[in-house]
Every structure is written in structure tokens, then in C-alpha cells.
């Protein structure tokens, strides 16, 4: 069973077409070329599909890095600690 943290990591790899070595939990949007406006849409779809929470457009566009995604999901009661 994949942990939520592992699911998030895989989601980020898949949405932004990153290689494994490119991923860090402190990655920021400005470091990812594919985190453009369409990437915002894909990430919102992926968060909904993976974690069952549908970010509002404001939340999705306000995400500035992986840490913000974690904060958003933990604010909705989704545990990403382990």
C-alpha cells in the first residue's frame, strides 16, 4: 500500500514529467518548466483523482511548490507525514 507521501511524489513525477532524480519535496514551481498554466490544471485534476479533494481555481493557481501542495492537503485532513 503506497503512503500518501509516496502517492504525492508519484503524482508530481507524472504530472510534470519529471525524472526520479529531479524530484525533491522542497521543489518550487519556478524550478519546474512544465508547471505552467496547463500544469496547474493537470495538477488539480491529479490531486482530485489521487486524494479526493478538488482544489479551487484560486488554491490551484496559488500553489508555489510541493510544500504548498502538502500544506493544502494536510489542511483538508490528508496525512502526508509518512
Amino acid at each position: 500500500m503506497m503512503s500518501n507521501r509516496a502517492k504525492l511524489r508519484q503524482l508530481m513525477l507524472d504530472v510534470f514529467l519529471l525524472d526520479e532524480h529531479e524530484f525533491r519535496f522542497d521543489l518550487r514551481r519556478s524550478e519546474i518548466d512544465t508547471w505552467d498554466s496547463l500544469g496547474v490544471v493537470s495538477l488539480a485534476v491529479g490531486i482530485h483523482q489521487t486524494f479526493g479533494y478538488h482544489p479551487t481555481p484560486e488554491e490551484a493557481t496559488g500553489l508555489a511548490g510541493v510544500a504548498d501542495v502538502i500544506a493544502l492537503l494536510e489542511g483538508r485532513g490528508i496525512d502526508l507525514a509518512g
Binding site: L17, T34, L38
Partner: peptide, 17 residues
């Protein structure tokens, strides 16, 4: 296909796998 703008606004997330 994965990088196409239309794919990236699909209703279900299209992943490499």
C-alpha cells in the same frame, strides 16, 4: 501525446503509465 496541451486538460490525469 503526454506533452500535448489538449492531453494536459483531459478530465482524467494522463500519466506516462
Amino acid at each position: 501525446v503526454l506533452r500535448d496541451p489538449c492531453t494536459r486538460t483531459n478530465s482524467a490525469l494522463v500519466r506516462p503509465n
